[in-house]
Design a binder for these strands. Structure first.
Length: 443
RNA sequence: GUGAAAGUAGCUCAGUCGGACAGAGCACUGGAUUGUGGUUCCAGGGGUCGCGGGUUCGAAUCCCGUCUUUCACCCCA
């Protein structure tokens, strides 16, 4: 019986694994050099944990299960609730700021499509306990720092940012009731994905007053932070001014202090679907705009409180591997994510060759090859040999396929204690004494 | 969960007005007088034509169902 792979999952054959590891290693390097520490949690949690901040719709997109004690559990669809739980549990003993990162494997029971699968990896970075917008800027900088290292330039991607606080202030100032804000966010978040006409119609359905609706549209079309004042006109007030000021600071930090201004751009259409964002929000998109967002994040000052903790400010980012990989592939950048691989040494023996030197037990060329391989491995080098007693030419071919940097040939020279060491990229060979060769290698 | 398109070898595909043992390239395995690789040449293995049912003398080909993939919608933590 042939059993197919599960819908929306991937098999990682060695070449795929090399790509996956390359991407994840890049995420980890960027995290560490930006001062984040790694954490992780269990792959399943109480189902209830995902119901706190999410509606039924989202709970339906969970892989849930019941344990033998009848507990309702779910495979994690995100790691932020786990993070909130872990931080809350030890909030009194953790030194601030808490700068943590994780690369969890997540599952969501959504219908798979381009850039979205049912099982994936997601890089998460969070800074907890810092109110200052410097933390928001640092989250964005770390994100760009990674993307830049991966080979993406300001010509490939754009960080689009806005602020929930600004949006809320603007909407309130033009007369939107507090209770309507959340549902309006969901609509505004779709602006970029809907045809202009459709968006206009949907907005009119929700906001009956024509003047109010057109003011919202004017705001959504502002192309710079400073342009917001003009766009909203008389709706300007202190609350709006403060939010504007905050966002300007983030822009200035990214541009002047952190030097990544060319990647960043204000975009009032960035809202984020989730209700829990409270301040700066951002997404990274490909410039062409063909793919869904590469990553998204923002400030969520109330979330830890919602999970039973105190009022602790927090800001963070999540980046999945699926869209990123598509973009890197399109830009021809996948190969450069892969580091190393290949063998340090491939040991070639001469079939049928026997040694009976004094002081050494009688052995074959093949036996000596196994012995040398074991010693090299003991010294921390990657080394391998052929299982087949094929000719030297065949073995060298195998060595090429294995991407070996050097080949060592165990031949007649060994009678004089010598090895042939061949550089596989240049083809050059040298004759070296075996003990001399080994003593040069440090463990 | 809704709608549309596709499914032939590991991969990319050809083959279909229904007709003989189902094809190519790449990849893989083996070989080209047993001590020198990446090239080339030769040979070989590998497919219940996604699966199930129906129409027919006969189905990879036509019809229905189903699964999977892709795309769009819902949603996007």
């Amino acid at each position: 019986m042939k059993i197919p792979p599960v819908k929306g999952t991937r098999d990682f054959y060695p070449p795929d694994m090399a790509v996956r590891n390359g991407i994840i290693d890049g995420w980890k390097r960027a995290s560490i050099r930006n001062g984040f520490e790694e954490y992780d949690g269990p792959i399943f949690e109480h189902l209830q944990m995902y119901q706190i901040k999410s509606g039924d719709e989202i709970v339906e997109q969970l892989f849930s299960l019941e344990d033998r004690g009848g507990r309702a559990l779910a495979i994690r669809p995100e790691i932020t609730p786990t993070l909130a739980r872990m931080v809350n549990q030890r909030i009194n003993s953790l030194s601030r700021p808490i700068k943590w990162f994780s690369v969890p494997r997540l599952c969501r029971a959504e219908r798979p499509q381009k850039g979205r699968l049912r099982e994936f990896f997601q890089w998460n970075i969070d800074i907890i306990g810092v109110d200052d917008v410097l933390a928001d800027a640092e989250v964005i900088f770390t994100t760009v720092d990674y993307l830049r290292e991966a080979g993406l330039t300001a010509g490939d991607i754009r960080v689009k940012m806005s602020s929930r606080r600004l949006l809320a202030a603007v909407l309130r100032s033009i007369g939107i009731a507090e209770a309507e804000l959340d549902s309006l966010y969901v609509l505004l978040d779709k602006k970029g994905r809907l045809p202009a006409e459709t968006f206009k119609e949907l907005l009119a359905e929700r906001v009956s007053d024509v003047g109010t609706a057109s003011r919202i549209e004017a705001f959504m079309e502002a192309s710079s932070v400073s342009g917001v004042r003009q766009a909203i006109g008389a709706a300007w007030n202190d609350e709006v001014a403060e939010a504007i000021n905050e966002l300007s600071q983030v822009e200035r930090l990214l541009k002047e202090e952190m030097g990544v201004g060319e990647y960043c751009q204000f975009d009032p259409c960035i809202v984020r679907g989730l209700a829990y964002y409270t301040g700066v929000v951002f997404e990274v998109h490909d410039i062409v705009g063909e793919l869904r967002a590469i990553c998204g994040g923002g400030r969520y000052d109330n979330l830890l409180g919602d999970f039973g903790g105190g009022a602790i400010p927090a800001t963070g980012m999540g980046m999945g591997d699926c869209v990123l990989e598509i973009l890197l592939a399109e830009k021809g950048l996948l190969d450069r994510q892969i580091s190393g691989g290949g063998l340090d040494y491939f040991i070639v023996f001469v079939p049928g060759l026997k040694f009976d030197g004094p002081g050494d037990v009688a052995s074959t060329s093949r036996g000596q090859a196994v012995r040398l391989t074991a010693r090299l491995r003991g010294l921390g080098r990657s080394a391998d040999f052929s299982y087949k007693a094929a000719g030297v030419g065949k073995q060298l071919k195998q060595a090429s396929e294995r991407n070996a940097r050097e080949c060592i040939i165990i031949g007649d020279e060994l009678r004089r204690g010598k090895l042939v060491v061949k550089d596989m990229s240049t083809g050059e060979q040298r004759l070296v004494g075996m003990e001399e060769f080994l003593s040069q290698l440090k463990p």
